[in-house]
Structure formats: structure tokens, C-alpha cells
């Protein structure tokens, strides 16, 4: 049973709209320490907007978001920066810096946020994180030379290098072949176990959700329409939830 004090992320009645179009309409969820939660939903359902609000990249119109006990939308720039050191954000597009090598990409957050580290310690940290994701041989490659799966993994490695307490994955398996998807799913589980992180995984891939998440939340029409374990969430009469399940698993007749 999860305790109240174990809550790492508390989202309460969050609303967000763009140009008068409502995207999130009363989102409420609590995420506990060490838990992996997958948020499932169709494209444009506001999944990515939600994790950008958690990371402080967007402000909610209404409601509150508490991360590690701090209310994100009331923090000043310095406090937000300190909070972000504890949050890793893996972008859908990987968002690697095109003009830098893999090593420089990994070095970038480290040398700016841990200025006391020596050059040797920085190199060690880079080698360790690359080794843990199995991509040590890409050290001097440019992002353009990497495959889609490698880019995703380097993107995750760049966030892991600061030892975050929370990981936010935005569509970690989108655009990848099934074998690479399995590798990424294993990596997400590996990160949870090795780094003891609490994670939110935004996806519309049920295999990814089933493999990586302890709990699932399904978002439709700006609200969570079903929450719980994978085997529980689809036992509902809600057509939006059932339809989502059917599209993923019954694609061929």
C-alpha cells in the first residue's frame, strides 16, 4: 500500500488550453516513489502537454502540480533550476544537440551543473552512463550518425548523467522498429531498477506500457478516464478505452 508521504508527483485538477481549445480539463493523479506510470492516450490528447507542465516548461491555466513537495508553477527561476536537476526529461525527438558529439552532449549538463567535478571525473561519468546503456562506442559520433534507437538511448543517457530522481519519457518508442522498442522498454525498466527513479512514460504503445509501467492512466477528452494496473484499466465499458485497446491489439482481420 502506497503511503501519502511517498507521493513524489501530485497533480491536482490541472487545466490547460491553447487558443481557446481545451487540451487538459481537470487532470488529477498522484505518483509514488519508485513507481513507473504510463500515460496512454491518442495523439493530441494532451499527454506531452502534461509532462511539460510537470517539468515547468508550460504553465497550467488552473490547478496545481507538486513535484518533490514543491509547487512547480510558483517557483522562481533559481528554484525551478534546482528542481530540474532532479528531473530527467527524455524527448520524443531525443532533442540531441546537433552541433555536438555524443560526448559533448553528455558533458553539456554535467559541466554546467556540477562545476566541482574534475575533467577525469566528468569523463568517468560519461563512460559509466554510456556503458550502462551499451553505447560506449558512440562517444565521438555526431547525432546525425546515430540510428533512431541509439539517439533515444543517448537522449536518456543525457538525462541520467545528472542522477535524476524522476524520469519523464515522452513517446520513448515512437518511430522505432519492434526490436529496438523492446530494447528501449528494457532500458526504461533497467533505469528504474538501477537508478531508483520514479517515472512517467507517455506513450500510445500498449506493449511499452505493459512492459515498463507499474500503473496505467488513460487520458481522453482532457481527463483521465481510467487508472490502475494494466489488467484492470481495460475492464471498463468506456468506448474510448476499449477502442484504444482494440486498435493496438486487433489491427488485422
Amino acid at each position: 500500500m502506497n503511503k501519502e508521504e511517498d507521493i513524489i508527483i501530485a497533480i491536482n485538477d490541472v487545466e490547460k488550453s491553447f487558443n481557446g481549445i481545451s487540451v487538459l480539463n481537470g487532470i488529477t493523479i498522484n505518483i509514488h516513489k519508485g513507481e513507473n506510470v504510463a500515460i496512454l492516450g491518442r495523439s493530441g490528447s494532451g499527454k506531452s502537454v502534461l509532462i511539460k507542465i510537470i517539468a515547468g516548461l508550460l504553465l497550467p491555466d488552473k490547478g496545481s502540480v507538486h513535484v518533490l513537495g514543491m509547487e512547480v508553477n510558483t517557483l522562481n527561476a533559481r528554484e525551478l533550476q534546482q528542481l530540474r536537476l532532479k528531473i530527467g526529461f527524455s524527448f520524443q525527438s531525443s532533442a540531441l544537440y546537433d552541433s555536438m558529439t555524443v560526448k559533448e552532449n553528455l558533458q553539456f549538463p554535467l559541466i554546467r551543473n556540477k562545476r566541482h567535478l574534475t575533467g577525469k571525473e566528468v569523463n568517468e561519468a560519461i563512460n559509466n552512463v554510456l556503458e550502462s546503456i551499451g553505447l560506449l562506442d558512440t562517444l565521438h559520433k555526431m547525432p546525425a550518425e546515430l540510428s533512431g534507437g541509439q539517439r533515444k538511448r543517448i537522449g536518456i543517457a543525457r538525462t541520467l548523467i545528472l542522477n535524476p530522481e524522476i524520469m519523464l519519457y515522452d513517446e520513448p518508442t515512437s518511430g522505432l522498429d519492434p526490436i529496438t522498442c523492446v530494447e528501449i522498454n528494457h532500458l526504461i525498466k533497467h533505469v528504474q531498477e538501477q537508478y531508483n527513479t520514479t517515472s512517467i512514460i507517455i506513450t500510445h504503445d500498449l506493449t511499452c506500457a505493459k512492459t515498463t509501467a507499474d500503473n496505467i492512466a488513460i487520458i481522453a477528452d482532457g481527463k483521465f478516464v481510467s487508472q490502475g494496473k494494466f489488467n484492470e484499466v481495460f475492464h471498463t465499458a468506456d468506448k474510448r478505452v476499449k477502442g484504444f485497446y482494440d486498435y493496438n491489439f486487433i489491427t488485422m482481420k
Binding site: A55, L57, Q82, R84, F89, F91, A95, N113, L162
Partner: peptide, 18 residues
């Protein structure tokens, strides 16, 4: 502009770099 649309600027921001 390219960094903005490919979320590289957001990536810098969330990695606690201004």
C-alpha cells in the same frame, strides 16, 4: 529556429541550463 522546433532549447532548459 531549428533548435527550437526540434526541442533542443527545451532540452537545455530541463537540464537546468539557461
Amino acid at each position: 529556429g531549428s533548435m527550437k522546433v526540434t526541442e533542443q532549447i527545451d532540452a537545455m532548459e530541463v537540464s537546468a541550463t539557461n
